[in-house]
Write a protein that binds this DNA or RNA. Structure first.
Length: 573
DNA sequence: GCCGTTTTCGGCCCGACTGTTTTCAGTCG
């Protein structure tokens, strides 16, 4: 399922890691990292490109271009194999230990022959690191704890969990007298699909007081770092939280800096340098005189770099800086533009809330329309029957009068079977306003079978939306094996929308797939797949993911007025 | 290794925190 571009990206990153261990030149590894990102984010498929085309990828020059070419032809490149022969894979894993970088790793390997994390752990217990220059008692203790952390780390957490933790700290610290402003930043503000650590920004004239309160909070398990302007803690839930305190006058520059992404920041800092300016978290300055130009708002800083304000969800160095310069930045979808949810459940199947409760909550969100899409009979455990479905439709029609401003749509979530058929015949399907169809079984079919299956479902004139198209569950289940190129072409050809499922552990399609599908002219439905009233709020994550895929109102069928949506649901028929 | 409105060489984003080599390198974001 991984694109060749992703495989090449991983190989270039591995090469960069090995270089950073073996050389003292910091720039060479950085060149490979930069090229790796460029390749991973490049729309063209490396497998279909010749060397001349490869060299057109930004940050890819002759040397890297030839290595990529070699990799595409042979599955590796010689220079990578040479470095692999010098550095055992375990040494590269060692630089994943927090606080241990390439320079310390190579010393441990060369001086003590330590070749993996396990051997390092043993050496620490035996106190063998003390004989090395530059490894004092504290460093040894930090490595011991770093290994501990790496072993028990939960890895990246769901965006919803990080959001809850952000809300907790905003409530605990945001109301303090010495806190003039507080917001979350980092990957959470960019709405990345998983969060590695939570970044919080505070404006205050008394940083020490705020940081003391932060590090002594009941949620804090261990203080990782504590200075005059920043501090990092490990929470009891295992997630790292970084707090940065700046003066209110520097808020905008600090938000840009702390929101990232890192590659985005590097891009705009390079732009600043070319203009004879310097950008850091305190503001935009003239490089020579050091005179402050702007700092208070993000808009001002971007403006002085000749850029419009760029939404945080786009700040991934995926072409947003170029688009901003050309004035072609997308007008990304907003929560407010969404007029309805097209994938929701009730307690008629596996939902937790009644139809009435779901409708009441949805109405409070200001939707113009709302679809109930309970499971269909072939998902046998849900015990759906024709009679139950028709009774629900009847109930929905009666409830319509209670919601004069919200049109109630009756739908269902169909099951795509092994061959691509769905639950009911055309006659029964005609009775629904909207049909989502999803894969709920046989996740292990071959790529060809799975692709044919989904394409066949899309060719069904009654199927309007493919639900959670890749079926992945973050940290739990791998995506199904699909020829996405074929699926996206078929979705565009048949006029079937692909879902951007906002449920936090699904987020399916994911951002890169959305970008890819969008280039084929595919339409999307941003839905919550709610099984409880509280889930309806997950639309924020669907919108975040849609923005990360550069979607606008035009791309998203449930951001359209009802009449236009109804035309789409006729599927050209 | 890449790149160019300081263009084929000489730069490459910038600052905070930590520990230790007490003046700075390593690591991180």
């Amino acid at each position: 399922m991984a694109r060749l571009n992703d495989t090449v990206e991983a190989a270039l990153i591995e090469y960069a890691d090995l270089l950073s261990i073996l050389t003292n030149d910091p720039y060479k590894p950085r060149s490979y990292e930069k090229a790796a990102r460029a390749v991973g984010g490049y729309p063209g498929d490396l497998g279909t490109m010749d060397l001349k085309e490869v060299l057109k990828i930004p940050s890819v020059g002759k040397s890297i271009g030839e290595k990529i070419d070699e990799f595409v032809r042979t599955g590796s490149f010689e220079a990578l194999e040479e470095l692999r022969a010098q550095i055992p894979p375990g040494v590269r894993e060692m630089i994943g230990i927090p606080g241990l970088g390439p320079k310390k790793a190579i010393v441990l390997y060369r001086e003590l022959g330590i070749a993996d994390v396990e051997q390092l752990g043993q050496a620490v217990e035996q106190g063998r690191l003390a004989e090395l220059k530059g490894f004092g008692a504290k460093t040894q203790e930090n490595i011991r704890r770093g290994i501990e952390r790496m072993n028990q780390s939960t890895g990246r957490v769901l965006v919803s969990m990080a959001m809850d933790l952000a809300d907790y700290f905003l409530e605990r610290l945001g109301g303090r007298k010495d806190v003039r402003r507080m917001e979350y930043a980092g990957s959470l503000r960019r709405m990345a699909e998983t969060i590695g650590d939570l970044d919080l920004l505070v404006a205050s004239d008394d940083p020490i007081g705020v940081i003391d309160a932060f590090t002594s909070d009941g949620m804090t398990d261990r203080v990782l770092a504590k200075g005059d302007t920043k501090s990092s803690i490990l929470t009891r839930k295992g997630l790292q939280v970084d707090l940065r305190v700046v003066p209110l006058e520097a808020w905008g520059a600090a938000m840009i800096y702390f929101t990232g992404s890192k590659p985005h920041n590097i891009r705009i800092r390079e732009m600043a340098v070319r203009k004879g300016l310097k950008l850091n978290e305190y503001g935009l300055y003239r490089a020579k005189s050091g005179k402050l130009i702007v700092a208070e708002t993000e808009e001002e800083v971007y403006e002085k770099l000749s850029l419009p304000w760029i939404p945080p969800t786009l700040r991934e160095d995926r072409g947003e800086v170029e688009a901003a310069l050309e004035g072609t930045l997308p007008d990304v979808l907003t929560r407010k533009q969404l007029r309805g949810d097209l994938h929701t459940h009730t307690d008629l199947t596996d939902g937790l809330a009644s139809l009435e409760q779901m409708l009441a909550t949805a109405s409070g969100l200001g939707y113009a329309y709302y679809a109930v899409t309970d499971h269909a009979p072939n998902l046998f455990m849900q015990r759906m029957t024709d009679e139950k479905m028709l009774a629900q439709r009847e109930q929905l029609r009666k409830l319509q009068s209670s919601y004069p401003r919200m049109t109630l749509l009756h739908g269902t979530e169909l099951n795509i079977d092994a061959e691509g058929n769905v639950d009911w015949d055309a006659g029964f399907l005609d009775g629904f306003d909207v049909c989502v169809a999803s894969v709920h079984s046989l996740f292990n079919q071959s790529k060809d079978e799975m692709t044919r299956r989904i394409v066949r479902a899309m060719e069904n004139p009654h199927v309007h939306v493919i639900g959670h198209p890749t079926g992945r569950i973050i940290n739990k289940r791998q995506p199904v094996d699909l020829d996405l190129e074929e699926v996206f072409k078929a979705a565009a050809r048949t006029g079937t929308a692909l879902e951007v499922n906002g449920y936090p552990d699904r987020l399916d399609l994911r951002d890169e797939h959305i970008l890819w599908a969008r280039r084929h002219g595919v339409r999307f439905a941003v839905d919550t797949d709610s099984h409880a009233t509280t889930h309806l709020e997950h639309m924020r994550y669907g919108v975040g993911n849609a923005q990360r895929g550069w979607l606008t109102q035009d791309d998203v069928i449930n951001a359209w007025p009802l009449s236009k949506l109804r035309t789409f649901l006729r599927k050209g028929g």
